[in-house]
Amino acid sequence: MADQSAELVQGTLDMLILKTLDLEPMHGWGIAQRIRQMSGGVFEINPGSLFPGFRRLERAGLLDCEWRTSENHRRAKYYSLTKMGRRKLATETREWGRQVAAIGKILETAS
């Protein structure tokens, strides 16, 4: 599986974290799992970049966090989207869509 996993496009990790938290608050491991599942195993998230991402987003006011008891009865740090985080996700998604569409067009005409 590892050899099939792809490198994340620079700067998209933040967007994926926000997207994952759109549904419900989650803890670190859960977020990593969810990203892998949702991408069909294409993206293997490296914890070394995941945690700095959390800290960065938290500082930017896009994430909130609180300590809760997890499903297996252990204390875990749960992250959730703030209002600003939701807004950021919406604009990022729109922007991403626009860019993908544009790149798609270029690739089609080129071939």
């Binding site: 670190g28 491991w29 945690f51 252990r74 204390r75 740090k77």
Partner: peptide, 17 residues
């Protein structure tokens, strides 16, 4: 301390999996 705990939890969860 919080960071330690958070990372430990991550490893625990991964190992459990």
């Amino acid at each position: 301390h919080e960071l330690d705990e958070e990372l430990r939890e991550f490893v625990d969860a991964n190992a459990a999996e």
